[in-house]
Nucleic acid binder design. Sequence first.
DNA 1: TTTAAATATTGATATAGATCAATGAATTTG
DNA 2: CAAATTCATTGATCTATATCAATATTTAAA
Lengths: 269, 269
Amino acid sequence: MGNQRSERVFSMPTRKLESVVSLRDIRVACKACSLKEICLPVGIDRDDLERLDSIIDRKHPLARGEHLFRVGDRFQSIYAVRSGSLKTYSTSEGGHEQVMGFQLPGELVGLDAISENQHPLAAKALETTSVCEIPFTDLESLSSQISGLQHQLLRVMSQEIRDDEQNMVILGQKSAEQRLAAFLISISNRFRRRGFSATQFNLSMSRSDIGNYLGLALETVSRLFTRFQNDGLLRVDRKHIELLDRDRLCAYSGAHCSEQQSPRESSRH
Amino acid sequence: MGNQRSERVFSMPTRKLESVVSLRDIRVACKACSLKEICLPVGIDRDDLERLDSIIDRKHPLARGEHLFRVGDRFQSIYAVRSGSLKTYSTSEGGHEQVMGFQLPGELVGLDAISENQHPLAAKALETTSVCEIPFTDLESLSSQISGLQHQLLRVMSQEIRDDEQNMVILGQKSAEQRLAAFLISISNRFRRRGFSATQFNLSMSRSDIGNYLGLALETVSRLFTRFQNDGLLRVDRKHIELLDRDRLCAYSGAHCSEQQSPRESSRH
DNA sequence: TTTAAATATTGATATAGATCAATGAATTTG
DNA sequence: CAAATTCATTGATCTATATCAATATTTAAA
Protein backbone atom coordinates (compact mmCIF):
# COMPACT_ATOMS: atom_id res chain seq x y z
CA MET A 1 0.00 0.00 0.00
CA GLY A 2 1.50 3.30 -1.12
CA ASN A 3 5.13 3.47 -0.23
CA GLN A 4 5.02 2.04 3.22
CA ARG A 5 8.20 0.42 1.93
CA SER A 6 11.41 -0.71 3.43
CA GLU A 7 10.26 -0.93 7.01
CA ARG A 8 11.54 -4.34 7.60
CA VAL A 9 15.13 -3.66 8.39
CA PHE A 10 16.14 -5.61 11.41
CA SER A 11 18.77 -4.22 13.66
CA MET A 12 19.69 -5.14 17.20
CA PRO A 13 17.31 -7.21 19.26
CA THR A 14 14.65 -5.49 21.30
CA ARG A 15 16.10 -3.60 24.18
CA LYS A 16 13.04 -3.51 26.34
CA LEU A 17 11.08 -6.68 26.44
CA GLU A 18 8.01 -5.68 28.34
CA SER A 19 5.66 -7.18 25.77
CA VAL A 20 5.72 -10.89 25.35
CA VAL A 21 5.13 -11.39 21.67
CA SER A 22 7.76 -11.75 19.02
CA LEU A 23 8.73 -8.14 19.07
CA ARG A 24 12.18 -8.88 17.82
CA ASP A 25 11.05 -9.07 14.26
CA ILE A 26 9.22 -5.83 14.45
CA ARG A 27 12.12 -3.94 15.87
CA VAL A 28 13.09 -1.43 13.25
CA ALA A 29 15.71 1.24 13.43
CA CYS A 30 14.73 4.87 13.19
CA LYS A 31 17.30 5.36 10.54
CA ALA A 32 15.54 2.80 8.40
CA CYS A 33 12.05 3.90 9.20
CA SER A 34 10.12 5.39 6.34
CA LEU A 35 8.84 7.98 8.70
CA LYS A 36 12.13 9.30 9.83
CA GLU A 37 12.01 12.54 7.89
CA ILE A 38 8.69 13.17 9.45
CA CYS A 39 9.50 12.48 13.02
CA LEU A 40 12.83 14.18 12.82
CA PRO A 41 13.06 16.26 9.72
CA VAL A 42 16.14 18.34 10.07
CA GLY A 43 19.71 18.62 11.06
CA ILE A 44 20.23 15.32 12.76
CA ASP A 45 23.25 13.47 11.57
CA ARG A 46 24.02 9.78 11.35
CA ASP A 47 25.45 9.42 14.83
CA ASP A 48 22.70 11.41 16.47
CA LEU A 49 20.11 9.36 14.71
CA GLU A 50 21.63 6.22 16.08
CA ARG A 51 21.45 7.65 19.58
CA LEU A 52 17.86 8.66 19.08
CA ASP A 53 17.06 5.26 17.73
CA SER A 54 18.42 3.63 20.81
CA ILE A 55 15.76 5.20 22.99
CA ILE A 56 12.83 4.43 20.76
CA ASP A 57 10.75 1.42 21.44
CA ARG A 58 8.35 -0.30 19.06
CA LYS A 59 5.31 -1.73 20.66
CA HIS A 60 3.27 -4.45 19.15
CA PRO A 61 0.29 -3.27 17.17
CA LEU A 62 -2.91 -2.17 18.82
CA ALA A 63 -6.12 -3.81 17.70
CA ARG A 64 -9.03 -1.67 16.61
CA GLY A 65 -10.64 -0.13 19.67
CA GLU A 66 -7.64 -0.67 21.93
CA HIS A 67 -6.33 2.25 23.90
CA LEU A 68 -2.79 3.50 23.63
CA PHE A 69 -3.40 5.50 26.78
CA ARG A 70 -6.35 6.82 28.72
CA VAL A 71 -7.24 10.08 30.37
CA GLY A 72 -5.22 10.51 33.51
CA ASP A 73 -2.58 7.96 32.62
CA ARG A 74 0.84 8.96 33.80
CA PHE A 75 2.77 10.63 31.03
CA GLN A 76 5.93 8.78 30.15
CA SER A 77 6.27 8.75 26.42
CA ILE A 78 5.16 10.39 23.29
CA TYR A 79 4.19 8.14 20.42
CA ALA A 80 4.56 8.25 16.68
CA VAL A 81 2.05 6.40 14.57
CA ARG A 82 3.81 4.02 12.20
CA SER A 83 0.78 2.55 10.52
CA GLY A 84 -2.93 2.65 11.12
CA SER A 85 -4.55 5.55 12.90
CA LEU A 86 -5.68 6.84 16.24
CA LYS A 87 -8.24 9.19 17.58
CA THR A 88 -7.72 11.28 20.67
CA TYR A 89 -10.69 12.30 22.72
CA SER A 90 -11.86 13.43 26.10
CA THR A 91 -15.01 12.54 27.91
CA SER A 92 -17.12 15.09 29.73
CA GLU A 93 -18.79 14.32 33.04
CA GLY A 94 -21.99 13.46 31.20
CA GLY A 95 -20.09 10.70 29.47
CA HIS A 96 -20.23 12.70 26.29
CA GLU A 97 -17.22 12.22 24.09
CA GLN A 98 -15.31 14.97 22.37
CA VAL A 99 -13.00 13.88 19.58
CA MET A 100 -9.97 16.09 19.58
CA GLY A 101 -8.01 14.77 16.67
CA PHE A 102 -6.97 11.94 14.44
CA GLN A 103 -3.41 10.72 14.08
CA LEU A 104 -2.24 9.26 10.81
CA PRO A 105 1.04 7.54 10.09
CA GLY A 106 4.00 9.73 10.86
CA GLU A 107 2.14 11.90 13.33
CA LEU A 108 2.79 12.28 17.03
CA VAL A 109 0.49 11.90 20.01
CA GLY A 110 0.87 12.88 23.59
CA LEU A 111 2.54 16.26 23.41
CA ASP A 112 -0.31 17.75 25.39
CA ALA A 113 0.59 15.59 28.37
CA ILE A 114 3.93 17.17 29.18
CA SER A 115 2.63 20.07 31.18
CA GLU A 116 0.58 18.09 33.66
CA ASN A 117 2.59 14.92 33.55
CA GLN A 118 -0.52 13.01 32.72
CA HIS A 119 -2.59 12.47 29.63
CA PRO A 120 -5.49 14.88 29.30
CA LEU A 121 -6.92 12.84 26.45
CA ALA A 122 -7.35 9.20 25.65
CA ALA A 123 -5.93 7.72 22.46
CA LYS A 124 -7.70 4.83 20.83
CA ALA A 125 -6.84 2.84 17.72
CA LEU A 126 -9.31 3.28 14.89
CA GLU A 127 -7.90 0.22 13.17
CA THR A 128 -4.95 -2.06 13.67
CA THR A 129 -2.25 0.42 14.50
CA SER A 130 1.39 0.29 15.35
CA VAL A 131 3.30 3.03 17.07
CA CYS A 132 6.80 3.90 18.16
CA GLU A 133 7.13 4.77 21.79
CA ILE A 134 9.55 7.56 22.63
CA PRO A 135 10.25 7.76 26.36
CA PHE A 136 10.08 11.41 27.17
CA THR A 137 12.82 11.78 29.75
CA ASP A 138 15.23 10.08 27.39
CA LEU A 139 14.11 12.33 24.61
CA GLU A 140 14.53 15.37 26.78
CA SER A 141 18.00 14.53 27.92
CA LEU A 142 19.00 13.60 24.42
CA SER A 143 17.65 16.83 23.04
CA SER A 144 19.70 18.89 25.42
CA GLN A 145 22.73 17.23 23.86
CA ILE A 146 21.60 17.40 20.27
CA SER A 147 20.63 20.95 19.57
CA GLY A 148 18.98 20.01 16.29
CA LEU A 149 16.73 17.66 18.15
CA GLN A 150 15.77 20.24 20.71
CA HIS A 151 14.84 22.63 17.99
CA GLN A 152 12.94 19.98 16.13
CA LEU A 153 10.95 19.13 19.19
CA LEU A 154 10.01 22.74 19.68
CA ARG A 155 9.08 23.02 16.04
CA VAL A 156 6.82 20.01 16.24
CA MET A 157 5.08 21.40 19.29
CA SER A 158 4.76 24.78 17.71
CA GLN A 159 3.23 23.17 14.66
CA GLU A 160 0.73 21.42 16.85
CA ILE A 161 -0.29 24.77 18.27
CA ARG A 162 -0.69 26.12 14.74
CA ASP A 163 -2.86 23.20 13.79
CA ASP A 164 -5.05 23.64 16.79
CA GLU A 165 -5.41 27.29 15.95
CA GLN A 166 -6.51 26.33 12.48
CA ASN A 167 -9.08 24.03 13.97
CA MET A 168 -10.35 26.83 16.12
CA VAL A 169 -10.96 28.90 13.01
CA ILE A 170 -12.81 26.01 11.45
CA LEU A 171 -14.97 25.40 14.49
CA GLY A 172 -15.42 29.06 15.23
CA GLN A 173 -16.61 30.39 11.94
CA LYS A 174 -16.94 27.94 9.14
CA SER A 175 -20.17 26.45 7.86
CA ALA A 176 -20.80 22.74 7.98
CA GLU A 177 -19.91 22.44 4.34
CA GLN A 178 -16.65 24.32 4.79
CA ARG A 179 -15.75 22.22 7.78
CA LEU A 180 -16.14 18.92 6.05
CA ALA A 181 -14.36 20.19 2.95
CA ALA A 182 -11.48 21.46 5.06
CA PHE A 183 -11.36 18.19 6.91
CA LEU A 184 -11.11 16.16 3.72
CA ILE A 185 -8.46 18.42 2.29
CA SER A 186 -6.48 18.15 5.47
CA ILE A 187 -6.66 14.37 5.49
CA SER A 188 -5.75 14.29 1.84
CA ASN A 189 -2.73 16.50 2.39
CA ARG A 190 -1.59 14.48 5.32
CA PHE A 191 -1.82 11.26 3.36
CA ARG A 192 0.00 12.74 0.42
CA ARG A 193 2.77 14.01 2.58
CA ARG A 194 3.36 10.47 3.81
CA GLY A 195 3.49 9.20 0.27
CA PHE A 196 -0.02 7.84 0.08
CA SER A 197 -2.55 8.85 -2.50
CA ALA A 198 -4.01 12.28 -1.94
CA THR A 199 -7.11 11.53 -3.93
CA GLN A 200 -8.11 8.13 -2.71
CA PHE A 201 -8.14 6.90 0.83
CA ASN A 202 -10.10 5.18 3.52
CA LEU A 203 -11.44 7.11 6.44
CA SER A 204 -10.83 4.92 9.42
CA MET A 205 -13.12 6.97 11.63
CA SER A 206 -16.90 6.80 11.72
CA ARG A 207 -19.23 9.53 10.54
CA SER A 208 -20.00 10.10 14.15
CA ASP A 209 -16.33 10.67 14.96
CA ILE A 210 -16.00 13.07 12.07
CA GLY A 211 -19.10 14.95 13.12
CA ASN A 212 -17.99 15.10 16.69
CA TYR A 213 -14.58 16.34 15.67
CA LEU A 214 -16.05 19.00 13.40
CA GLY A 215 -18.75 20.08 15.79
CA LEU A 216 -21.51 18.72 13.57
CA ALA A 217 -24.22 16.12 13.91
CA LEU A 218 -23.37 12.88 12.18
CA GLU A 219 -26.47 13.25 10.04
CA THR A 220 -25.10 16.50 8.74
CA VAL A 221 -21.84 14.82 7.83
CA SER A 222 -23.69 12.09 6.04
CA ARG A 223 -25.83 14.54 4.11
CA LEU A 224 -22.80 16.55 3.14
CA PHE A 225 -21.04 13.51 1.79
CA THR A 226 -23.96 12.79 -0.49
CA ARG A 227 -24.18 16.44 -1.46
CA PHE A 228 -20.49 16.54 -2.31
CA GLN A 229 -20.92 13.42 -4.32
CA ASN A 230 -23.88 14.85 -6.21
CA ASP A 231 -21.87 17.96 -6.89
CA GLY A 232 -19.21 15.78 -8.45
CA LEU A 233 -16.59 16.70 -5.91
CA LEU A 234 -15.91 13.19 -4.77
CA ARG A 235 -17.09 9.65 -4.70
CA VAL A 236 -18.00 8.03 -1.39
CA ASP A 237 -18.41 4.41 -0.70
CA ARG A 238 -18.83 4.02 2.97
CA LYS A 239 -15.32 4.56 4.34
CA HIS A 240 -13.68 4.88 0.99
CA ILE A 241 -13.28 8.35 -0.44
CA GLU A 242 -12.12 9.36 -3.86
CA LEU A 243 -11.58 13.03 -4.44
CA LEU A 244 -12.60 13.92 -7.96
CA ASP A 245 -12.15 17.66 -7.84
CA ARG A 246 -9.71 18.55 -5.15
CA ASP A 247 -9.46 22.18 -6.20
CA ARG A 248 -13.14 22.78 -6.02
CA LEU A 249 -13.36 20.96 -2.73
CA CYS A 250 -10.63 23.21 -1.49
CA ALA A 251 -12.56 26.22 -2.67
CA TYR A 252 -15.58 24.90 -0.76
CA SER A 253 -13.48 24.86 2.37
CA GLY A 254 -13.13 28.61 2.22
CA ALA A 255 -9.36 28.62 2.70
CA HIS A 256 -6.54 30.00 0.62
CA CYS A 257 -5.94 26.91 -1.47
CA SER A 258 -3.66 28.58 -3.95
CA GLU A 259 -0.84 26.20 -3.10
CA GLN A 260 -3.17 23.30 -2.31
CA GLN A 261 -1.64 23.50 1.15
CA SER A 262 -3.09 22.42 4.43
CA PRO A 263 -2.11 23.66 7.86
CA ARG A 264 -0.70 20.34 8.81
CA GLU A 265 1.60 19.89 5.94
CA SER A 266 2.99 23.37 5.91
CA SER A 267 5.52 22.54 8.60
CA ARG A 268 8.18 21.67 6.08
CA HIS A 269 10.08 24.84 5.53
CA MET B 1 -3.70 47.68 41.22
CA GLY B 2 -3.57 44.19 42.63
CA ASN B 3 -0.05 43.15 43.43
CA GLN B 4 1.69 44.44 40.36
CA ARG B 5 4.24 45.46 42.95
CA SER B 6 7.98 45.73 43.08
CA GLU B 7 8.61 45.98 39.40
CA ARG B 8 10.85 48.94 39.57
CA VAL B 9 14.14 47.38 40.39
CA PHE B 10 16.81 48.83 38.21
CA SER B 11 19.72 46.68 37.25
CA MET B 12 22.30 47.09 34.53
CA PRO B 13 21.59 49.55 31.77
CA THR B 14 19.72 48.37 28.73
CA ARG B 15 21.75 46.00 26.66
CA LYS B 16 20.01 46.59 23.40
CA LEU B 17 19.15 50.15 22.65
CA GLU B 18 17.04 49.78 19.58
CA SER B 19 14.27 51.98 20.92
CA VAL B 20 15.02 55.61 21.50
CA VAL B 21 13.04 56.47 24.58
CA SER B 22 14.25 56.32 28.15
CA LEU B 23 14.22 52.58 28.36
CA ARG B 24 16.81 52.55 31.05
CA ASP B 25 14.31 53.26 33.76
CA ILE B 26 12.01 50.52 32.66
CA ARG B 27 14.69 47.91 32.59
CA VAL B 28 13.76 45.41 35.24
CA ALA B 29 15.46 42.19 36.12
CA CYS B 30 13.64 38.92 35.69
CA LYS B 31 14.53 38.00 39.20
CA ALA B 32 12.65 41.01 40.48
CA CYS B 33 9.74 40.72 38.11
CA SER B 34 6.45 39.87 39.69
CA LEU B 35 5.82 37.52 36.85
CA LYS B 36 8.84 35.40 37.25
CA GLU B 37 7.12 32.39 38.74
CA ILE B 38 4.79 32.47 35.84
CA CYS B 39 7.25 32.80 33.06
CA LEU B 40 9.62 30.37 34.63
CA PRO B 41 7.93 28.47 37.38
CA VAL B 42 10.29 25.75 38.35
CA GLY B 43 13.73 24.59 39.03
CA ILE B 44 15.72 27.56 37.95
CA ASP B 45 18.24 28.72 40.46
CA ARG B 46 19.66 32.14 41.19
CA ASP B 47 22.52 31.95 38.74
CA ASP B 48 20.44 30.56 35.96
CA LEU B 49 17.88 33.25 36.49
CA GLU B 50 20.54 35.87 36.09
CA ARG B 51 21.60 34.31 32.83
CA LEU B 52 18.06 34.20 31.62
CA ASP B 53 17.56 37.75 32.66
CA SER B 54 20.48 38.85 30.59
CA ILE B 55 18.80 37.82 27.38
CA ILE B 56 15.45 39.37 28.10
CA ASP B 57 14.67 42.74 26.73
CA ARG B 58 11.95 45.13 27.88
CA LYS B 59 10.37 47.13 25.16
CA HIS B 60 8.55 50.33 25.76
CA PRO B 61 4.81 49.99 26.15
CA LEU B 62 2.53 49.58 23.19
CA ALA B 63 -0.35 51.97 22.86
CA ARG B 64 -3.85 50.63 22.42
CA GLY B 65 -4.24 49.33 18.90
CA GLU B 66 -0.51 49.05 18.22
CA HIS B 67 0.83 45.81 16.88
CA LEU B 68 3.46 43.78 18.63
CA PHE B 69 3.87 41.81 15.42
CA ARG B 70 1.89 41.11 12.31
CA VAL B 71 1.10 38.06 10.25
CA GLY B 72 4.14 37.00 8.33
CA ASP B 73 6.63 38.92 10.45
CA ARG B 74 9.86 37.08 10.86
CA PHE B 75 9.90 35.16 14.10
CA GLN B 76 12.68 36.26 16.39
CA SER B 77 11.31 36.41 19.88
CA ILE B 78 8.57 35.26 22.08
CA TYR B 79 6.97 37.82 24.35
CA ALA B 80 5.61 37.83 27.85
CA VAL B 81 2.92 40.33 28.73
CA ARG B 82 3.94 42.36 31.76
CA SER B 83 0.92 44.59 31.99
CA GLY B 84 -2.05 45.33 29.80
CA SER B 85 -3.34 42.78 27.33
CA LEU B 86 -3.11 41.62 23.75
CA LYS B 87 -5.28 39.86 21.28
CA THR B 88 -3.93 37.55 18.62
CA TYR B 89 -5.82 37.13 15.40
CA SER B 90 -5.57 36.13 11.81
CA THR B 91 -7.30 37.62 8.82
CA SER B 92 -8.88 35.54 6.11
CA GLU B 93 -8.65 36.49 2.45
CA GLY B 94 -12.05 38.16 2.70
CA GLY B 95 -10.54 40.49 5.27
CA HIS B 96 -12.54 38.75 7.93
CA GLU B 97 -10.82 38.66 11.28
CA GLN B 98 -10.58 35.61 13.52
CA VAL B 99 -9.58 36.30 17.09
CA MET B 100 -7.48 33.44 18.33
CA GLY B 101 -6.78 34.43 21.88
CA PHE B 102 -6.21 37.06 24.49
CA GLN B 103 -3.02 37.43 26.48
CA LEU B 104 -3.13 38.75 30.00
CA PRO B 105 -0.21 39.69 32.23
CA GLY B 106 2.17 36.83 32.73
CA GLU B 107 1.17 35.04 29.55
CA LEU B 108 3.30 34.33 26.53
CA VAL B 109 2.72 35.06 22.85
CA GLY B 110 4.43 33.83 19.75
CA LEU B 111 4.99 30.16 20.47
CA ASP B 112 3.08 29.29 17.35
CA ALA B 113 5.69 30.99 15.21
CA ILE B 114 8.57 28.63 15.89
CA SER B 115 7.67 26.00 13.37
CA GLU B 116 7.45 28.28 10.35
CA ASN B 117 9.88 30.88 11.52
CA GLN B 118 7.28 33.51 10.98
CA HIS B 119 4.24 34.71 12.85
CA PRO B 120 1.02 33.05 11.71
CA LEU B 121 -1.02 35.51 13.74
CA ALA B 122 -0.91 39.21 14.46
CA ALA B 123 -0.76 40.47 18.04
CA LYS B 124 -2.35 43.79 18.86
CA ALA B 125 -2.52 45.68 22.13
CA LEU B 126 -6.03 45.99 23.55
CA GLU B 127 -4.88 48.72 25.90
CA THR B 128 -1.55 50.22 26.89
CA THR B 129 0.56 47.15 27.21
CA SER B 130 4.12 46.38 28.08
CA VAL B 131 5.91 43.18 27.23
CA CYS B 132 9.20 41.45 27.77
CA GLU B 133 10.92 40.33 24.63
CA ILE B 134 12.74 37.02 24.79
CA PRO B 135 14.96 36.45 21.78
CA PHE B 136 14.34 32.91 20.78
CA THR B 137 17.76 31.78 19.67
CA ASP B 138 19.17 32.99 22.95
CA LEU B 139 16.43 31.22 24.80
CA GLU B 140 17.08 28.05 22.89
CA SER B 141 20.78 27.98 23.47
CA LEU B 142 20.27 28.84 27.09
CA SER B 143 17.74 26.12 27.54
CA SER B 144 20.09 23.51 26.21
CA GLN B 145 22.39 24.49 29.06
CA ILE B 146 19.77 24.80 31.76
CA SER B 147 17.77 21.63 31.76
CA GLY B 148 15.10 23.10 33.99
CA LEU B 149 14.54 25.80 31.45
CA GLN B 150 14.26 23.37 28.58
CA HIS B 151 11.68 21.41 30.47
CA GLN B 152 9.82 24.53 31.42
CA LEU B 153 9.69 25.66 27.84
CA LEU B 154 8.25 22.34 26.78
CA ARG B 155 5.75 22.49 29.59
CA VAL B 156 4.59 25.91 28.58
CA MET B 157 4.12 24.81 25.00
CA SER B 158 2.36 21.69 26.08
CA GLN B 159 0.05 23.78 28.19
CA GLU B 160 -0.71 25.95 25.23
CA ILE B 161 -1.75 22.86 23.31
CA ARG B 162 -3.98 21.83 26.20
CA ASP B 163 -5.59 25.23 26.27
CA ASP B 164 -6.24 25.14 22.56
CA GLU B 165 -7.78 21.73 22.94
CA GLN B 166 -10.06 23.11 25.61
CA ASN B 167 -11.08 25.86 23.25
CA MET B 168 -11.86 23.30 20.62
CA VAL B 169 -14.26 21.62 23.01
CA ILE B 170 -15.88 24.93 23.73
CA LEU B 171 -16.25 25.85 20.08
CA GLY B 172 -17.17 22.37 19.01
CA GLN B 173 -19.98 21.54 21.35
CA LYS B 174 -20.93 24.14 23.86
CA SER B 175 -23.94 26.40 23.64
CA ALA B 176 -23.58 30.14 23.45
CA GLU B 177 -24.37 30.40 27.13
CA GLN B 178 -21.79 27.81 28.06
CA ARG B 179 -19.17 29.48 25.92
CA LEU B 180 -19.53 32.85 27.49
CA ALA B 181 -19.66 31.39 30.97
CA ALA B 182 -16.53 29.36 30.30
CA PHE B 183 -14.84 32.41 28.90
CA LEU B 184 -15.57 34.50 31.97
CA ILE B 185 -14.45 31.76 34.31
CA SER B 186 -11.25 31.38 32.36
CA ILE B 187 -10.52 35.09 32.49
CA SER B 188 -11.35 35.14 36.16
CA ASN B 189 -9.00 32.27 36.88
CA ARG B 190 -6.23 33.80 34.90
CA PHE B 191 -6.57 37.09 36.73
CA ARG B 192 -6.65 35.39 40.08
CA ARG B 193 -3.59 33.40 39.32
CA ARG B 194 -1.73 36.62 38.71
CA GLY B 195 -2.89 38.02 41.99
CA PHE B 196 -5.68 40.16 40.66
CA SER B 197 -9.25 39.92 41.77
CA ALA B 198 -11.07 36.88 40.43
CA THR B 199 -14.47 38.46 40.87
CA GLN B 200 -14.00 41.92 39.52
CA PHE B 201 -12.16 42.93 36.41
CA ASN B 202 -12.25 44.91 33.24
CA LEU B 203 -12.54 43.21 29.93
CA SER B 204 -10.17 45.04 27.66
CA MET B 205 -11.64 43.49 24.57
CA SER B 206 -14.82 44.51 22.81
CA ARG B 207 -18.00 42.45 22.63
CA SER B 208 -17.18 41.89 19.06
CA ASP B 209 -13.78 40.44 19.94
CA ILE B 210 -15.35 38.20 22.52
CA GLY B 211 -17.98 37.05 20.08
CA ASN B 212 -15.47 36.45 17.39
CA TYR B 213 -13.27 34.49 19.74
CA LEU B 214 -16.17 32.38 20.96
CA GLY B 215 -17.67 31.84 17.54
CA LEU B 216 -20.75 33.92 18.37
CA ALA B 217 -22.33 37.06 17.02
CA LEU B 218 -21.62 40.12 19.15
CA GLU B 219 -25.33 40.57 19.63
CA THR B 220 -25.49 37.16 21.20
CA VAL B 221 -22.71 38.07 23.58
CA SER B 222 -24.48 41.24 24.52
CA ARG B 223 -27.76 39.46 25.12
CA LEU B 224 -26.03 36.85 27.24
CA PHE B 225 -24.42 39.48 29.41
CA THR B 226 -27.79 40.95 30.17
CA ARG B 227 -29.26 37.52 30.72
CA PHE B 228 -26.48 36.59 33.13
CA GLN B 229 -27.03 39.85 34.92
CA ASN B 230 -30.76 39.25 35.20
CA ASP B 231 -30.04 35.80 36.53
CA GLY B 232 -27.96 37.39 39.26
CA LEU B 233 -24.76 35.75 38.10
CA LEU B 234 -22.85 38.93 37.59
CA ARG B 235 -23.01 42.66 37.19
CA VAL B 236 -21.92 44.24 33.95
CA ASP B 237 -21.13 47.83 33.36
CA ARG B 238 -19.75 48.12 29.90
CA LYS B 239 -16.23 46.72 30.23
CA HIS B 240 -16.41 46.19 33.94
CA ILE B 241 -17.50 42.79 35.18
CA GLU B 242 -18.28 41.72 38.68
CA LEU B 243 -18.91 38.06 39.23
CA LEU B 244 -21.57 37.62 41.88
CA ASP B 245 -21.99 33.87 41.76
CA ARG B 246 -18.89 32.30 40.40
CA ASP B 247 -19.97 28.77 41.22
CA ARG B 248 -23.22 29.05 39.39
CA LEU B 249 -21.51 30.69 36.46
CA CYS B 250 -19.12 27.80 36.43
CA ALA B 251 -22.02 25.39 36.43
CA TYR B 252 -23.46 27.29 33.46
CA SER B 253 -20.24 26.67 31.61
CA GLY B 254 -20.88 22.96 31.69
CA ALA B 255 -17.43 22.04 32.92
CA HIS B 256 -16.24 20.14 35.96
CA CYS B 257 -15.93 23.10 38.26
CA SER B 258 -15.41 21.11 41.41
CA GLU B 259 -12.04 22.71 42.03
CA GLN B 260 -13.04 26.03 40.47
CA GLN B 261 -10.26 25.27 38.00
CA SER B 262 -9.78 26.51 34.54
CA PRO B 263 -7.67 24.95 31.82
CA ARG B 264 -5.24 27.80 31.87
CA GLU B 265 -4.49 27.81 35.52
CA SER B 266 -4.11 24.12 35.95
CA SER B 267 -0.55 24.17 34.69
CA ARG B 268 0.91 24.55 38.14
CA HIS B 269 1.48 21.06 39.31
C1' DT C 1 -26.26 -18.68 8.21
C1' DT C 2 -29.22 -16.12 11.26
C1' DT C 3 -29.52 -12.72 14.63
C1' DA C 4 -28.02 -8.87 16.72
C1' DA C 5 -25.61 -4.61 17.04
C1' DA C 6 -23.41 -0.92 15.05
C1' DT C 7 -23.24 2.40 11.50
C1' DA C 8 -25.11 5.10 7.63
C1' DT C 9 -28.54 7.29 4.97
C1' DT C 10 -32.61 10.08 4.23
C1' DG C 11 -36.71 12.74 5.58
C1' DA C 12 -39.55 15.92 8.58
C1' DT C 13 -39.48 19.25 12.08
C1' DA C 14 -37.79 22.39 15.63
C1' DT C 15 -34.66 25.82 17.43
C1' DA C 16 -30.47 28.22 18.80
C1' DG C 17 -28.34 31.67 17.33
C1' DA C 18 -27.30 34.53 13.04
C1' DT C 19 -28.64 38.43 10.59
C1' DC C 20 -31.02 42.70 9.80
C1' DA C 21 -32.37 46.95 11.83
C1' DA C 22 -32.97 50.72 14.93
C1' DT C 23 -31.55 53.23 19.05
C1' DG C 24 -28.67 54.55 22.62
C1' DA C 25 -24.31 55.20 25.15
C1' DA C 26 -19.48 56.23 25.28
C1' DT C 27 -15.30 57.52 23.30
C1' DT C 28 -12.54 60.05 20.10
C1' DT C 29 -11.61 63.93 17.18
C1' DG C 30 -11.25 68.27 15.39
C1' DC D 1 -17.83 71.14 23.30
C1' DA D 2 -20.02 69.53 19.34
C1' DA D 3 -19.73 66.17 15.79
C1' DA D 4 -18.33 61.94 14.43
C1' DT D 5 -17.24 57.45 15.25
C1' DT D 6 -17.13 53.43 17.56
C1' DC D 7 -19.32 50.27 20.61
C1' DA D 8 -23.36 48.19 23.05
C1' DT D 9 -28.04 47.02 23.66
C1' DT D 10 -32.52 45.31 22.30
C1' DG D 11 -36.03 43.65 19.08
C1' DA D 12 -37.88 41.07 14.91
C1' DT D 13 -37.04 37.71 11.64
C1' DC D 14 -34.75 34.05 9.17
C1' DT D 15 -31.86 30.03 8.44
C1' DA D 16 -28.45 26.55 9.03
C1' DT D 17 -28.12 22.77 11.34
C1' DA D 18 -29.65 19.99 15.33
C1' DT D 19 -32.91 16.74 16.68
C1' DC D 20 -36.26 13.20 16.11
C1' DA D 21 -37.57 9.25 13.50
C1' DA D 22 -37.62 5.55 10.24
C1' DT D 23 -35.10 2.58 7.23
C1' DA D 24 -31.16 0.47 5.18
C1' DT D 25 -26.72 -1.31 5.23
C1' DT D 26 -22.68 -3.28 7.12
C1' DT D 27 -20.18 -5.70 10.58
C1' DA D 28 -19.95 -8.69 14.54
C1' DA D 29 -21.63 -12.33 17.11
C1' DA D 30 -23.74 -16.57 18.03
